[in-house]
Amino acid sequence: MEIFALLDCIISPACLLSQAAGGLKIGMLLFLVASGLTLVFGVLGVINFAHGALYMLGAYFSWQIMSITGHFGLSVILGALGVGIFGLLFERILISRVYNADLLVQILLCYSVVLILDDLVMIIWGDEFLSSVGVPEVFQVPPLFIFDAIIPPFHLAIISMSFIVGLILWFIMTKTRFGRLVRAAAVNPKMLEALGININLLRACVFMLGSFLAGLGGALAASVGSVVSGMGNSIIIESFIVTVIGGMGSISGAFLASLIIGMARSFGAVAMPLFTDGLMFLIMVLVLVLRPQGLMGNKK
């Protein structure tokens, strides 16, 4: 462990700021994906192991749309919407059959979908890495220098966009009728059904929203990194970590946990480059042992 490297970084404004910005970018991208996972768990009670595969699908969809239209904004939005629709079908055809099944069955069902999708994208798009969609032209400018810290403007765009999506999500969940229904469904779905609410429709909508968020995360990731089959297999574990640390089903908790994980990854890379992932799992273990319901979760 290189504790002096970390100290050196913290006292230098340039390093501190660029690592913090890097951590914020990682954390906010993670929040997009993890918020979908935690939303689906909170309302449907299903651990969607295929969430990472949906993220991957988002990256492929947006890559495909980008190569046809060449329009960045369109590729991100249509890519995410495509995954939303895919998620809707996935929920109706498969997930809805296992709502009352036990945990193992749900996990295996989702994991089989991961295996199938990982191979399907290879069949459709080939098994080579697809080079990233690329940063849109507006952002192809020299990076900003703030206190000598190098900050690419596109990263700022990703951070603010994720932040706006988070705000919209917060608004939907707390201020709209739909959000109130969703929160009620998480607490007592039977009562909601008795009151004449179509619970199946609600569940499908929530799953679609969750998939949309995964797809959005994947579409944005495709603009900064390469697209490859199996790219969802690490994000899904990170999303689990965020979901657990924040409290399962809590979106505000996911926000907080994403920031913690983003910073842990960014500064961990300075302090202990070989153990950056280990640091995340250590935090996860500590939270589960000391506060199993998560930082913002309610005790059952």
């Binding site: 295996l108 089989s112 295996l115």
Partner: peptide
Amino acid sequence: YYGLVLGLVILCFVL
């Protein structure tokens, strides 16, 4: 495409 086949087999068993 091993994953594809294994995934379909698991799906058959689960459902």
